[in-house]
Amino acid sequence: MGLLLIYLILLCLGIPWYWPADSTLVWMGFPGWVISSIVVSILASIVTAIALHSKAGALDE
């Protein structure tokens, strides 16, 4: 359940619905909302890697 909650939070943060529609922030060549989306995606990858090891590791071969 904890993992599902983490993914739900990441899903909510990854979609930029909460960004002001007229935001013109540009950082490192990308719009600000794209940077936040990329950061969330990296976090999702890290969580998945950790979950993959702990969850799959728990199974018996």
Binding site: Y7, G14, I15, S37, I38, V40, S41, A44, S45, T48, L52
Partner: peptide
């Protein structure tokens, strides 16, 4: 980026 990550999830 998100939907390709979702595949692994």
């Amino acid at each position: 980026l998100h939907f390709m990550t979702a595949v692994i999830v």
